[in-house]
Every structure is written in C-alpha cells, then in structure tokens.
C-alpha cells in the first residue's frame, strides 16, 4: 500500500516534495525552492466569503496558535445606509466558530472581511524592529525570527492592521507567516486549503502563470488602509470603503 501511494505521489511533484520531508520527521525547506523566483501575496475575495471561520480554525491548528490570539481572523461588517463611515463590526472569537445568522430584510449591507498579515513590501513593522528579528524574506514574506526577538512589542504597535501579538508562552512577537513552511514545499496556505469558497487565494506575483494576473486584469482590487502606504500585498476584491 505504501509503495502504491508513493508511485502515485511521483505523479504529483508538489505533494511529493512536501511528503518527503513530512515523512523524514524533520521537515526542512524544499531543496527545489528558489526564494528569488517568488514574490508572495494573497488575494481575498470579499464577494465569496461566507464567514464560516474555516480559515481561522485551520490557521490555529496548522500553526499551534493559542486561544484568543489570531494570525488571521474574520470580521463581519454591517454598513447601514445612513452611517457609511461608521459600520458596525463584530468578530466573535475572531470569527472562529462563524457568525450569528442575520434574518432577511435587515436594513443595510452585510459582508465578511477576512484579515491577516498583509505581508507589506514597505512594512512598518520590520522598519521599527530594533534588532532585526523581523524582516521581509527575499520572496516577500514578512517573517519573525523567534530565536532573536526581544519581545519589545514595538512592531505590534507599528502594524496599522493589528496583525501582530506577543505570543503568551514564547514571549516573542508572532503573526502570519503565510504558511511559509507550506508554500516553500509547493502547498498552499492552511487558510486557503480550508476555505470552501475560494475566497482566499495564495498568489505568487513573480509567477507569470499564477491566476492572480488574470484576476487583476478583470477586477478592481484594493488593499487595506492604502493611505498607510505600506505596500500591502493582501489584495481585496469587493472591498467596501467602510472597511478599516
């Protein structure tokens, strides 16, 4: 049985690479992975998000995130017609278990906004780190070196999107790694893998065959808080002006 599975895996190089290292027990970065060939980002389609919370649970599972802390979370906006700038927003436990139902005929517009690290290319968080414990990797992912971080929390303050926190046990800054341990092995992120509607799509901007390029040609996308000029790489389709 093992043998036949292996034979099948050979047909699927991406999974095969991942597999070799999972099986070895001490997985490491794929030897075939070239950092210089990628520039990672994320496409988030608000028109597709149903607020099921699968991404939040998957992220917490995949990355061992303690309860009450979020590398990704989902917000539900309620924008009434009279208070465009003042939406009512909820995110119970980060949207982990979904959201309460809204009866038909309620006034105003409802929509879900998944949030995560924007992996900014001019990231204010890496700018302020006093020791170089957080950085933009050559493939465009904002990462934290947990063995070097002082836990000063300056980066937590510097992130305009609230994506960082201090890990309660490790006492270092923590946030989304864009599942760096997965994307370097040809897999997609845990949140994208678990998203049932395709509201999240991992995007490799350097790969000319990535579907992101076709999508960007035909859609108007926006990033969060563009006035912050952070070079955010989480692109939102269908982003309402009231989202902050």
């Amino acid at each position: 049985m093992n043998i036949s599975r292996r034979q099948l895996l050979i047909l699927l190089p991406a999974a095969a690479v991942a597999w070799k290292y999972v099986e070895a027990g001490t997985p490491e970065a794929s030897p075939n992975y070239e950092m210089s060939e990628h520039w990672w980002g994320m496409l988030i389609d608000i028109t597709k998000c149903i607020g099921c919370g699968n991404c939040v649970r998957a992220c917490q599972k995949e990355n061992d995130i303690p309860d009450g802390y979020f590398r990704t979370w989902v917000e539900r906006y309620h924008r009434t017609d009279y208070h465009l700038e003042n939406p009512e927003v909820i995110s119970p436990d980060g949207g982990k278990e979904g959201f309460p139902s809204v009866p038909e005929g309620t006034q105003g517009d409802y929509f879900f906004v998944p949030k995560m690290c924007n992996h900014c290319s001019d990231s204010p968080c890496t700018q302020v780190c006093p020791v170089g414990a957080t950085f933009i990797s050559p493939d465009g992912v904002v990462l934290i070196d947990p063995k070097y971080c002082l836990g000063c929390a300056y980066c937590v303050q510097a992130c305009p999107y609230g994506c960082r926190y201090i890990h309660p046990e490790k006492k270092v800054a923590d946030k989304c790694t864009l599942c760096y341990h997965r994307i370097t092995k040809g897999l997609t992120t845990a949140c994208c893998e678990a998203c049932p509607t395709g509201a999240r799509q991992l995007a490799d901007l350097k790969n000319p065959n990535d579907p992101i390029h076709a999508f960007l040609k035909t859609h108007t996308v926006q990033v969060l808080k563009p006035q912050m000029a952070t070079g955010a790489k989480a692109f939102y389709n269908g982003l309402d002006g009231s989202v902050r």
């Binding site: 599975r5 099948l8 895996l9 047909l11 699927l12 991406a14 999974a15 991942a18 597999w19 999972v22 001490t26 997985p27 490491e28 970065a29 794929s30 950092m35 998957a58 599972k61 995949e62 990355n63 170089g132 414990a133 957080t134 950085f135 933009i136 990797s137 050559p138 990462l143 070196d145 947990p146 063995k147 070097y148 790694t177 760096y180 341990h181 997965r182 370097t184 092995k185 897999l187 997609t188 845990a190 893998e193 678990a194």
Partner: peptide
C-alpha cells in the same frame, strides 16, 4: 546574509511541521 536579520531563521520557519496534507495528497489515494 540577505539583509539585517538571521538568514538561518528562514529555514527554521520553513521547517515547521505540516498539519494539513493538501488536497493533492488526498487525491493520490
């Protein structure tokens, strides 16, 4: 090596174990 940080950290982060196998793995069987 790449910038003002410990380059070895990239490999260490990439070595985090996988929990979601990915649909390609499921479909193979």
């Amino acid at each position: 090596e790449y910038g003002h940080y410990r380059a070895a950290a990239i490999g260490e982060i990439a070595a985090h174990p996988i929990k979601f196998a990915g649909h390609q793995a499921c479909e193979s069987c």
